[in-house]
């Protein structure tokens, strides 16, 4: 989509909601260097959210939406769960269809967009909960990786089924007492990152959303590698504060604790050589571009 498509029709401008005016005038569609730092100074692509107050999923959404390399040509695929309550407020096309089939939808979508728009990169990004990604949808998640489908899968790992009230999930920690695991979960947290690596993902990252710069880098890496090379996977710890008995302001500490040495969410990445080479070249290009822009600005100012 060219940015010109997001314009207001003059005759109807007065009936459009103010937030849409802002979106047209002050969002960062088409800005090559967009990132989390735009939050606060530009119009975000998420209007509001209907998650619990303080739910880390909400900040994760904001960072991800701020970090997409090209939201004007990105389509999201969601799944059922707490995340699906947010998508209606997001200013990027997004699909909700069923619970667990997100990677099947994304496979068809990505191929069709590739076929319909041969000259344009249309990024497809899946964003779903751990139950959707690992339990009910694992088959489709993995099969899309086997087939080397070129899109990014993001899993909001809150280690349980939040939307249905806190039941056991495959990504839950061993021993955790939850609904449907009344004696404590009796098997280990599924090693999804390693499964992703072995199933053919070219780029895999596990982290929390405590640090926006890290989230930004990982999302950019994942989307750019998916464009050029193959499937990518990002697992983000977004604790369900409601179900683990935390207060609204305690989500950040929970994430920080879990990323300490020895914790479940110490940041890790698996990158294939090919993907690393691509990321290095993108980094180099960006550096040169930014330097040139700086020089140009200096010249103008001089």
């Amino acid at each position: 989509m060219s940015k010109e498509k997001i314009v207001l029709c003059d005759d109807l401008a007065d009936v459009m909601p103010p937030e849409y005016h802002e979106l047209v005038e002050n969002a960062t569609y088409g800005d090559q260097d967009r990132g989390w730092k735009d939050i606060g100074s530009s119009k975000e692509l998420i209007e509001q959210h209907s998650l619990c107050a303080g739910c880390p999923e909400s900040i994760a959404f904001r960072y991800i939406l701020a970090s997409l390399p090209a939201p004007e040509d990105t389509v999201f695929v969601g799944s059922t769960g707490c995340t699906s309550l947010v998508f209606p407020h997001v200013a990027v096309h997004n699909i909700h269809s069923l619970f667990g089939n997100q990677n099947a939808i994304a496979s068809g979508l990505k191929r069709t967009l590739k076929s319909r728009f041969p000259g344009v990169e249309k990024d497809v990004v899946v964003l779903a909960g751990d139950g959707a990604t690992v339990d009910i949808g694992l088959d489709m998640t993995m099969q899309s990786w086997f087939r080397q489908e070129k899109f990014t899968t993001i899993c909001f790992d809150n280690e349980l089924y939040a939307n249905t009230g806190g039941q056991e999930s495959g990504l839950m920690q061993k021993g955790f007492v939850a609904k449907m695991a009344p004696k404590g979960k009796n098997f280990e947290k599924v090693r999804l990152a390693e499964i992703a690596r072995e199933a053919g993902c070219a780029y895999v990252a596990v982290l929390t959303v405590s640090k926006p710069n890290r989230v930004e880098q990982v999302i950019k890496n994942a989307v750019l590698v998916a464009r050029e090379i193959g499937p990518t996977f990002v697992q983000l710890y977004t604790p369900c504060i409601l179900e683990i008995g935390k207060q609204s302001m305690e989500g950040l500490d929970e994430m920080k604790d879990s990323e300490q040495i020895g914790g479940r969410f110490v940041q890790k990445e698996y990158i294939t050589d090919e993907a690393q080479k691509l990321l290095d070249s993108i980094k180099e290009e960006t550096k040169i571009r930014k330097k040139a822009a700086k020089e140009a600005k200096k010249l103008v100012n001089a």
């Binding site: 389509v75 695929v77 699909i95 269809s97 069923l98 089939n101 099947a104 939808i105 994304a106 496979s107 068809g108 979508l109 990505k110 191929r111 069709t112 967009l113 076929s115 319909r116 088959d139 489709m140 099969q143 087939r147």
Partner: peptide
């Protein structure tokens, strides 16, 4: 234009939906 084998009928119908959402 595009054809592949899905992994199950449940997945196939999802893949069909993705393609139709995308305009094919």
């Amino acid at each position: 234009d595009e054809y592949f084998r899905g992994e199950s009928e449940f997945a196939v119908m999802g893949q069909c939906a993705g393609s139709a959402f995308g305009g094919h």
